[in-house]
Computed example of a mutant assay.
Amino acid sequence: MARESVKARERKRQKLVAKYAAKREELKANGDYAALDKLPKNSSKVRLHNRCLLTGRPKGYMRRFGISRVVFRELASQGKIPGVKKASW
Rank of each mutant, 00 (worst) to 15 (best):
C52D: 00
G56S: 13
L53S: 12
L48G: 05
H49C: 11
A35V: 02
Q14G: 03
K85V: 12
A76H: 01
E10S: 06
S77Q: 15
L27D: 01
L39A: 02
N30Q: 13
G31Y: 04
K38T: 05
A76L: 11
P40R: 03
V17F: 04
V70M: 12
T55W: 03
E25H: 10
R11F: 01
V71I: 15
K41T: 07
S44R: 13
L48Y: 05
A34T: 05
R64L: 09
M1H: 12
E26I: 01
M1Y: 09
N42G: 05
C52G: 09
K41C: 06
R64Q: 13
R64T: 14
L48Q: 05
A2F: 01
R51Q: 07
Y61E: 05
A29C: 03
I67P: 10
K41L: 11
K41E: 10
P82I: 06
Q78K: 15
N50I: 03
R24A: 03
K85P: 00
S68L: 13
A8L: 08
E26N: 07
D32H: 11
S77C: 14
Y61M: 09
K19L: 01
I81R: 09
R73V: 00
L54T: 11
S77T: 15
R24M: 10
S5A: 09
K23R: 14
G66R: 07
F72Q: 05
D32A: 06
R51W: 07
R9M: 14
A35D: 09
K59S: 12
N30T: 14
S5R: 10
K15I: 00
V84W: 10
Q14F: 01
R73G: 10
M62Y: 04
H49A: 15
R73P: 00
